[in-house]
Design a protein around this nucleic acid. Structure first.
Lengths: 334, 334
DNA sequence: TACGTTCCTGAAAACCTTTTCGGCGAGCCG
DNA sequence: CGGCTCGCCGAAAAGGTTTTCAGGAACGTA
């Protein structure tokens, strides 16, 4: 299949390429009848403009680079989807690059993207701790999503984990719970710390202590959720709510509560974190959880980037609130 | 930051652009000392060639389009990763487009990709049933992955579900199991039918009938896995193995077996399907499962596409065998 | 008739690179 | 010393589009 160029369209319509270009781009200085002839010719030839030539001359390619560090991770995908649909299909296309967490590979990708003249970049981190900046002297705007840049002059969009922890505990308090425990993941994750801080702050406001006397840091796994819950029940048998630092952990918690014949939510309420559908929907009972609104984060990242192209970008770290999604694992205490 | 062009490099090196180009591209007809001067100039200016201009003239952009229908789905991602790393980072960049299962949107994306002059396309379906062809008169090669094209003249790469079902049952038989049940998902999925067919074929070879008298089609959910298992245990209490059509279903199966205090794998062995890490690793016990080798499928898709660029593509449906990943949910019967 | 306006069209430059081909100088042979 | 080859370099065309600017036609006015 041979592709038609603007020349072919112009020839068929009996005009010059200049006029054909103007006609197709809606420039005003072309007679209506001429425009029609050109449009007709274009559709007859199934003409579609060569984006390379366009980009070469306009200095705008209508492409952005999405640089991620963990494709398999569940966090980049929603962000990526948000970004993908914020850029309309006709306007902007997205280059996807997975650096696999490797700095060298990241530099390679960066170089390739710049040589393709992307209009902007979104960098999606693998975990919500800060990461090295790509540098300040790039010829295109860059937005960091999920994982903030170490350089405060960059613009980063992150999830508000402290707010999320607060949200979860607040909900449990409103359900009348007073003995609230917090089982969460690896203490070296900023996210774990932040969520715990938010949770504790809300407890303190209410004049409560965390059940079990401490936050249970451990691992982001069901097994840890199970183990921690067993220890928790031993130390504090009258616990009436557990805020889990992830849905995985929450699944483990539910599992043990189920084994121990402790009714959820009648006896103990459970809140997870992430709203990871496969886990929460299949849980018994379906899990109340905190959704980080990552698609929204992705959408906003795309919009900000779009606005910044040509102009200039803000800086600093912008936090996005999560939202609580209630399901059957929480309910008011009768 | 201002970008250097080849002109700038040439000027700095004191040669013409033609020579500069040849020097940087390793063409033989340039003196070593000259080449060195050019390379030095290029690195001083941090020159990186404009890929648009290159593409315009060479008619090769070094980009491919990845057209998927469900980004959130767990099947496109591994394929995407495989493809991503088969194309080296310097060589090829990938445009990611999610059509959200919408045909109109797909046409839009297709048009955009063609106008960007991608060198080829990979189409990743959402479910493993055949999907409409993009058409035969495209100016670039197209490979369908996971979901085959309806048009047999297209080239499709799919997972061998029948072989996978056979694999699972074969393993159970080798473990000495004789009462093997099959609980699987929606019967309208070709994948469910194929896996069941493979499973039954292997049973028949062994002179066995499926335990419970029939294949239990239902839904791709844990809840169905639980429900079906309860019914199964009622109808056939001496079942000694369950082959589940997905890891989700398998989780439900394990859950009920656990409730009923039936030891896994001592009393009943369980095999899942998909090797979905979050589910299998956290299962109690960790789940033996069939891995569809999707990354490999993605890699091969990329390689085939690469080979086809310029040349011509094969046609028909090529099936990729899965592999059994054994964990603790299966073991020989003592 | 001469001239100024308004509308539309087209020639040409520009974007940046690759590739072809002609030419220049040097070295070699007769 | 003439002519040849060989090695290296540069001028120019090509790729497809957008945009500027000049100019032509038609029309109205003085």
């Amino acid at each position: 299949m041979v592709r038609a160029t603007l020349r072919d369209v112009a020839r068929l319509a009996g005009v010059s390429v200049a006029t054909a270009s103007k006609a197709l781009n809606g420039q005003p200085q072309v007679r209506a009848s001429t425009r029609e002839r050109v449009m007709l010719a274009a559709s007859q030839l199934d003409f579609s403009p060569n984006a390379l030539a366009q980009g070469l001359i306009t200095q705008r390619t209508g492409t952005v680079g999405l640089l991620t560090s963990d494709l398999e991770g569940r966090f980049s995908i929603p962000i990526l989807m948000g970004a993908e649909d914020a850029f309309g299909t006709d306007q902007t296309s997205v280059f996807l690059c997975d650096a696999r967490g490797d700095g060298i590979r990241e530099r390679h990708h960066l170089r390739a993207l710049l040589s393709r003249r992307v209009d902007g970049l979104i960098v999606v981190g693998a975990r919500p701790d800060s990461r090295p900046s790509l540098g300040r002297d790039l010829p295109v705007p860059v937005i960091y999503a999920y994982a903030p840049s170490e350089d405060p002059r960059d613009l980063s969009l992150v999830s508000d984990n402290e707010g999320g922890g607060r949200l979860a505990v607040d909900h449990l308090i409103r359900c009348g719970r007073r003995k609230i425990a917090h089982i969460t993941g690896d203490a070296s994750y900023g996210a774990a710390q932040d969520r715990a801080r938010g949770a504790l702050a809300r407890l303190t406001e209410e004049g409560l202590e965390v059940a079990g006397g401490e936050v249970w840091f451990g691992m982001w796994s069901e097994a840890w959720g199970r183990g921690a819950t067993r220890m928790l029940l031993e130390r504090c048998p009258d616990v009436d709510a557990v805020f889990a630092g992830s849905d995985e952990i929450a699944r483990g918690v539910l599992d043990v509560l189920h084994e121990e014949r402790l009714d959820v939510p009648g006896r103990v309420a459970v809140v997870g974190y992430d709203n990871w559908n496969i886990l929460v929907a299949n849980a018994r009972p379906p899990l109340t959880t905190v959704d980080m609104n990552l698609e929204q984060l992705g959408r906003v990242a795309a919009q900000r980037l779009f606005a910044a192209i040509g102009g200039t970008l803000g800086s600093g770290v912008e936090k996005f609130p999560g939202k609580l999604v209630t399901r059957e694992s929480t309910a008011p205490l009768r």
